[in-house]
Nucleic acid binder design. Sequence first.
DNA 1: AAAACTGGTTAATTTAATTTACCATGGCTA
DNA 2: TAGCCATGGTAAATTAAATTAACCAGTTTT
Lengths: 259, 259
Amino acid sequence: MDKAGKVFEPIATGSVAESVIHQIEAMIVSGILREGTKLPSERALSEQLNVSRPKLREALKQLEKDDLLVVKQGERSEIAPLIGSAMTPAFQELYGRHPSALFDFLEYRREQEAFAAGLAAKRATKADKEILTEILAEMERSRIAKDFKAEHLADVQFHSAIVAASNNSTLIHMMASIYQLTKRGVFSNRLFLRTMDGVGQKLHGQHCNIAQCIFDSDAEGAAEAARYHLDYVESSIRAGQERDARERLGQKRKFMRKS
Amino acid sequence: MDKAGKVFEPIATGSVAESVIHQIEAMIVSGILREGTKLPSERALSEQLNVSRPKLREALKQLEKDDLLVVKQGERSEIAPLIGSAMTPAFQELYGRHPSALFDFLEYRREQEAFAAGLAAKRATKADKEILTEILAEMERSRIAKDFKAEHLADVQFHSAIVAASNNSTLIHMMASIYQLTKRGVFSNRLFLRTMDGVGQKLHGQHCNIAQCIFDSDAEGAAEAARYHLDYVESSIRAGQERDARERLGQKRKFMRKS
DNA sequence: AAAACTGGTTAATTTAATTTACCATGGCTA
DNA sequence: TAGCCATGGTAAATTAAATTAACCAGTTTT
């Protein structure tokens, strides 16, 4: 039995603090705990985890040390910033002004969101679908109220929720970085507002179609609907720009006739 | 954050004894610890597992309680019998005498071993392949020495090793029950001896072919070779039975001419 | 401004595990 | 056949890990 006697491995029951760290890290990676999310109080959290407060604090201290948590006395701990930026602030400024950058950006988004929509159609949970339904309702509310800022925010939340429903942590993270550009208004909001103006109803229909394909677990349909939507957004922006150019020419002609 | 605050799960670091039980049970299910295998002494095992002897004993006592371990003072603990019998002793006796039962048995074995050979071709480890090579050599040795008992045992070991290399615990267990019938001589050894007589060289070649397909990771080839082998065994047994029947008729004719 | 919430610290206590010593049984060898 | 050596069996003392409880300091809310 000497031969078989060497097949056992040392038992390694992790410490309480290690187990806590492991669970919180897993929740960060899977997107359940996003950057900025505040944790419950230490007392509440130790109760939920069924561990003592000193041991919980040991774990939280380690997470703070690893730059995953921000801890301040008197305030609840919160998840640290997780998203780096693919662009420096200076490049973001230039990128936002560069005319064709917007279309490159839309092209990239189109492919990523088609991918995400396909995955979401396969993997979305009941909770994911309810979130999508709520955001769609909020978009419609803010569109009717002509609250463009709220409508724009809801639009980003909608696309972000689809990516979340893909349950692919790498895609979630990389797209969060992309959506941050949109949230910050790297591209002039005027471009988006022109797109929305007059075609909001149609865009809403497309959003509903994407969601319906996800609800129906139609992966190909969801990917195609997402691709179609982003194509439509791009062509609307192009049409708006061309309309602007024609109006500028018309104003110039009118001015020349007066003199 | 009240909503998100309910997403943490209680930490459950298992006790030392629970971890030991878990590891040993996993080794039983995966076939590493077979029935009859003796464990290292408690002192050696506690050293390998890096746990205290009292805690190890606590785990072993629970395994004994679950009928997975046999513990006797002064002797090393051993894995308890794990294989139940699909047949009662009375039915085994009848089954062994029933003429067509042998062919039903071979038919069942043929399909199971083709399945196992295919899996083994995909999954066999280096250790699995070495074991097969060793058993093939032992079979050849005992065939040349005309040690039929040893040859028969090696044959069962060969087929059992293929099943083990499939790494499918359910298949391993169910086939262990089947091979036990063979080991016990449920079917008259005379049938098998007649098969071996005169065709041993050919059967050996088939064994080598099966093994070679497994070494080559040829799943389809391995399954086909296994199926062909069991077909050949069956047809050899049938031929032997027909030869016996003709000899009995010839003896009767000879006796009638004398009177 | 006081109360209530939060994080921050530490000593006392409890629990789980380890260490150590010894007993009982069985097999092997001189 | 007795002694030795292996094994499993038992239990008390010690150590390590975790919990409990109490209190302090900062921030937010009423």
